[in-house]
Design a protein around this nucleic acid. Sequence first.
DNA 1: ACTGGATCCTGACTGC
DNA 2: TGCAGTCAGGATCCAG
Length: 276
Amino acid sequence: MPELPEVEVTRRGIAPHLEGRQLRGAVVREGRLRWPVPADLDARVRGLTVSSVTRRGKYLVLDLARGGRPAAALLIHLGMSGSLRVVPRETPLHRHDHLDLLLADGGVLRLRDPRRFGAVLWTEEEPAAHPRLADLGPEPLGPELTGDYLYARSRGRTATVKAFLMDASVVVGVGNIYASEALFRAGIHPGRAAGRIGRERYRRLAEAVRAVLEAAIAAGGTTLRDFTDSAGAPGYFRQQLAVYGHEGAPCPGCGHPLRRSVIAQRSSFYCGRCQT
DNA sequence: ACTGGATCCTGACTGC
DNA sequence: TGCAGTCAGGATCCAG
């Protein structure tokens, strides 16, 4: 489900409920996520304080401290269908509510993930050094994502520019929806070989990625099916999607019917006339 | 080093 | 109404 905007919207929603709060424990109802959730998570988190809630790519990072000193961190990935909400303790359980973090003030951070492609990882090392984070590319909203960077990284690559853009070791956070949207804004055909696109077009693409992600965050993310923010509200960027899911509709730029085809093993939407 | 394909899982939807 | 088939916002692992 969630790409960078949805994870960032989630982060902003849960952070005020978590930062500076102590954890009373955890309840793991279904630990079989992408990787097993530690069975003794309850004992591990008890008494720790959440010092910060940050994001790296599509991972949320909960830094945990004991007595003001960093003690551990939880890495949370929402996979395809995950969502996090802060709810009162007595909130009835849904079938796929796999894990609760119990806050000392009585609230609960509740993870729901029907498909169980998400992850909850415990680490006592520096989070950035964790194997899941160590090899990630730059943040798309930071200064490192430039056209020159994309141009340099793409030299010699024969895979499609869409696959290149969705490669987290190149740049994090861009999934199937926003790849289609950014390529449309940049006027680049998703099936073009990444290594055969020039510097000037990569400059446009870097700006398009930044612009579409920022706009999506501002709209609260994209809800296709089951994404909700931490208060249970859907995101409204779906209404601003130019091409994703709009096969056959007129291109917003030229009116030509939008096309769908499978590129990089995923549905891709584009205008065959505007995007070259 | 890079590439495409298979894989994990459940639920919603389509067509017969 | 039921059942089979398809598809879905991710990303890892593997063979070539």
